[in-house]
Protein backbone atom coordinates (compact mmCIF):
# COMPACT_ATOMS: atom_id res chain seq x y z
CA UNK A 1 0.00 0.00 0.00
CA UNK A 2 1.17 3.53 -0.68
CA UNK A 3 0.09 6.97 0.26
CA UNK A 4 0.78 10.06 -1.81
CA UNK A 5 0.83 13.31 0.10
CA UNK A 6 0.37 16.45 -2.02
CA UNK A 7 2.45 18.78 0.16
CA UNK A 8 1.02 22.00 -1.28
CA UNK A 9 -2.62 20.87 -1.05
CA UNK A 10 -3.43 23.00 2.07
CA UNK A 11 -2.17 26.19 0.45
CA UNK A 12 -3.89 25.35 -2.85
CA UNK A 13 -7.21 24.86 -1.00
CA UNK A 14 -6.73 28.17 0.84
CA UNK A 15 -5.97 29.97 -2.42
CA UNK A 16 -9.19 28.63 -3.93
CA UNK A 17 -11.20 29.66 -0.86
CA UNK A 18 -9.77 33.16 -1.25
CA UNK A 19 -10.78 33.11 -4.93
CA UNK A 20 -14.31 32.14 -3.91
CA UNK A 21 -14.33 35.03 -1.41
CA UNK A 22 -13.18 37.57 -3.97
CA UNK A 23 -15.87 36.34 -6.39
CA UNK A 24 -18.45 36.32 -3.55
CA UNK A 25 -19.22 32.65 -4.23
CA UNK A 26 -20.94 30.86 -1.31
CA UNK A 27 -19.98 33.63 1.10
CA UNK A 28 -22.62 33.45 3.83
CA UNK A 29 -21.97 36.34 6.20
CA UNK A 30 -21.26 40.09 6.14
CA UNK A 31 -19.02 41.40 8.92
CA UNK A 32 -19.74 45.05 9.74
CA UNK A 33 -16.80 46.98 11.18
CA UNK A 34 -17.85 50.58 11.79
CA UNK A 35 -19.04 51.61 8.33
CA UNK A 36 -17.07 49.02 6.36
CA UNK A 37 -18.50 45.68 5.24
CA UNK A 38 -16.63 42.44 4.60
CA UNK A 39 -18.11 39.34 2.95
CA UNK A 40 -16.72 36.00 4.11
CA UNK A 41 -17.38 32.29 4.70
CA UNK A 42 -18.50 31.47 8.23
CA UNK A 43 -16.50 28.22 8.17
CA UNK A 44 -13.24 30.02 7.39
CA UNK A 45 -13.93 32.65 10.08
CA UNK A 46 -14.67 29.89 12.64
CA UNK A 47 -11.57 27.95 11.69
CA UNK A 48 -9.37 31.00 12.35
CA UNK A 49 -11.03 32.96 15.16
CA UNK A 50 -12.17 31.88 18.60
CA UNK A 51 -14.72 34.69 18.67
CA UNK A 52 -16.35 33.60 15.39
CA UNK A 53 -16.19 29.93 16.51
CA UNK A 54 -18.19 30.89 19.61
CA UNK A 55 -20.68 33.00 17.63
CA UNK A 56 -21.37 30.45 14.87
CA UNK A 57 -21.60 27.44 17.18
CA UNK A 58 -24.28 29.27 19.15
CA UNK A 59 -27.57 27.90 17.83
CA UNK A 60 -29.19 31.32 18.28
CA UNK A 61 -26.56 33.14 16.19
CA UNK A 62 -25.30 30.60 13.65
CA UNK A 63 -27.95 31.58 11.09
CA UNK A 64 -27.24 35.31 11.21
CA UNK A 65 -26.04 36.64 7.84
CA UNK A 66 -24.63 39.88 9.24
CA UNK A 67 -22.50 40.44 12.34
CA UNK A 68 -21.56 43.89 13.70
CA UNK A 69 -18.28 44.02 15.56
CA UNK A 70 -17.55 46.28 18.53
CA UNK A 71 -17.06 49.87 17.25
CA UNK A 72 -13.61 49.93 18.91
CA UNK A 73 -12.40 47.48 16.22
CA UNK A 74 -10.25 49.11 13.55
CA UNK A 75 -11.53 48.23 10.04
CA UNK A 76 -7.98 48.27 8.61
CA UNK A 77 -6.82 45.89 11.32
CA UNK A 78 -9.77 43.61 10.63
CA UNK A 79 -9.12 43.68 6.88
CA UNK A 80 -5.50 42.60 7.45
CA UNK A 81 -6.56 39.76 9.75
CA UNK A 82 -9.26 38.62 7.29
CA UNK A 83 -6.60 38.60 4.56
CA UNK A 84 -4.37 36.53 6.89
CA UNK A 85 -7.19 34.01 7.43
CA UNK A 86 -7.44 33.45 3.67
CA UNK A 87 -3.73 33.67 2.74
CA UNK A 88 -1.59 32.75 5.83
CA UNK A 89 0.23 36.08 5.29
CA UNK A 90 -0.01 38.78 7.97
CA UNK A 91 0.93 42.22 6.65
CA UNK A 92 2.52 44.23 9.47
CA UNK A 93 2.57 47.93 8.63
CA UNK A 94 4.43 49.85 11.34
CA UNK A 95 1.51 52.26 11.82
CA UNK A 96 -1.03 49.44 12.19
CA UNK A 97 0.68 46.79 14.29
CA UNK A 98 -1.01 47.84 17.53
CA UNK A 99 -4.42 47.98 15.80
CA UNK A 100 -3.76 44.53 14.31
CA UNK A 101 -2.75 43.10 17.68
CA UNK A 102 -5.79 44.59 19.44
CA UNK A 103 -8.10 43.28 16.73
CA UNK A 104 -6.50 39.82 17.03
CA UNK A 105 -7.10 39.94 20.80
CA UNK A 106 -10.76 40.87 20.15
CA UNK A 107 -11.13 38.07 17.56
CA UNK A 108 -9.46 35.62 20.00
CA UNK A 109 -6.64 34.75 17.59
CA UNK A 110 -4.10 34.03 20.33
CA UNK A 111 -1.28 32.70 18.15
CA UNK A 112 -1.35 35.84 16.02
CA UNK A 113 -1.35 37.96 19.20
CA UNK A 114 1.72 36.14 20.52
CA UNK A 115 3.51 36.49 17.19
CA UNK A 116 2.70 40.23 17.02
CA UNK A 117 3.97 40.61 20.58
CA UNK A 118 7.27 38.91 19.76
CA UNK A 119 7.59 40.98 16.56
CA UNK A 120 7.05 44.25 18.48
CA UNK A 121 9.56 43.24 21.17
CA UNK A 122 12.16 42.16 18.60
CA UNK A 123 11.82 45.35 16.55
CA UNK A 124 11.74 47.70 19.55
CA UNK A 125 13.73 46.18 22.45
CA UNK A 126 13.56 49.49 24.43
Amino acid sequence: DSCIQFTRHASDVLLNLNRLRSRDILTDVTILVNRQQFRAHKTVLMACSGLFYTIFTDSLKCNLNAISLDPKVDPEGFAILLEFMYTSRLTLKESLIIAIMNTAIYLQMDHVVDTCHRFIKSSDPS
Binding site: M46, C48, D110, H111
Partner: peptide
Amino acid sequence: YEGVNTIKEMGRSIHEIPRQD
Protein backbone atom coordinates in the same frame (compact mmCIF):
# COMPACT_ATOMS: atom_id res chain seq x y z
CA TYR B 1 5.08 40.18 -1.85
CA GLU B 2 8.32 41.25 -3.41
CA GLY B 3 10.18 44.01 -1.57
CA VAL B 4 8.64 43.13 1.82
CA ASN B 5 10.94 41.26 4.19
CA THR B 6 9.02 38.07 4.95
CA ILE B 7 9.50 36.37 8.33
CA LYS B 8 8.58 32.65 8.32
CA GLU B 9 6.58 31.74 11.43
CA MET B 10 6.74 27.94 11.85
CA GLY B 11 4.49 27.79 14.90
CA ARG B 12 0.74 27.18 15.07
CA SER B 13 -1.22 29.99 13.42
CA ILE B 14 -4.79 29.45 14.58
CA HIS B 15 -6.79 27.70 17.30
CA GLU B 16 -7.64 23.99 17.00
CA ILE B 17 -11.36 23.18 16.78
CA PRO B 18 -12.18 20.41 19.31
CA ARG B 19 -13.35 17.01 18.00
CA GLN B 20 -16.54 17.61 19.97
CA ASP B 21 -17.67 20.30 22.36
